[in-house]
């Protein structure tokens, strides 16, 4: 029995998602290779791709991309299923969920506000996981305010960059 061929639209959707996943993995690896500015602080470039996918392809694609890029990224870095992986996954997943909730439910907010909330959530989630699973010391949170300030700056800039990219990569397929 012959299978029905997938539509061009469906193929294009999947190809675009895979290309963005590869971009997110590449940025994930790039960020992992940069010198650290503080415990578990990253620039958030990989989260920027999650934000773009949310706008272009919807919530499910965005959450799937966040999970996929942490899984594949950890595989290449060699931290799969280690504490580093759990911290990274908690941050990326919670940030993606907050992006979706803010995008759906917060009126008047732009990608900048969504990115800001996601960056802050990402940082807090990482600390909660470390404190809950590995080092049960509230003293950990002493380091949080300066890192949240860095996250605020990076979240705002990434959001602005996402807005800029969304406005300029506005393509349409015509027959």
């Amino acid at each position: 029995m012959r299978q029905k061929r997938p539509s061009l639209q469906s193929l294009e959707y999947k190809a675009r998602w895979l290309a963005l996943l590869l971009l997110a993995v590449g940025l994930h690896l790039f960020e992992a290779s940069l010198p650290s500015l503080g415990p578990w602080f990253k620039l958030g470039l990989a989260n920027l791709v999650t934000l773009l996918v949310l706008v272009w392809m919807g919530p499910r694609a965005a959450v799937a991309l966040a999970v996929g890029r942490v899984l594949i990224g950890a595989f290449f870095i060699g931290t799969l299923f280690t504490p580093t992986f759990l911290i990274s996954m908690a941050g990326a997943l919670s940030a993606a969920v907050v992006m979706v909730l803010a995008w759906r439910w917060l009126p008047g907010i732009s990608l900048i506000g969504i990115s800001l909330l996601a960056a802050l959530t990402h940082m807090v989630a990482q600390f909660v996981v470390v404190e809950g699973l590995f080092i049960q010391q509230p003293a950990l949170y002493y380091a949080l305010p300066p890192l949240l300030l860095l996250s605020t700056i990076s979240g705002w800039l990434n959001g602005a960059l996402a807005l800029y990219i969304v406005a300029r990569l506005n393509y349409e397929i015509q027959d």
Binding site: S110, L157, E172
Partner: peptide, 23 residues
């Protein structure tokens, strides 16, 4: 099928950086 680029609808990066009132 061809890909055509639509005219950019956004503003410059410096203006974009300001965000909305809610932001």
């Amino acid at each position: 099928a061809t890909l055509t680029r639509q005219k950019p609808v956004g503003q410059s990066l410096s203006v974009t950086l300001k965000g909305t009132r809610a932001d």
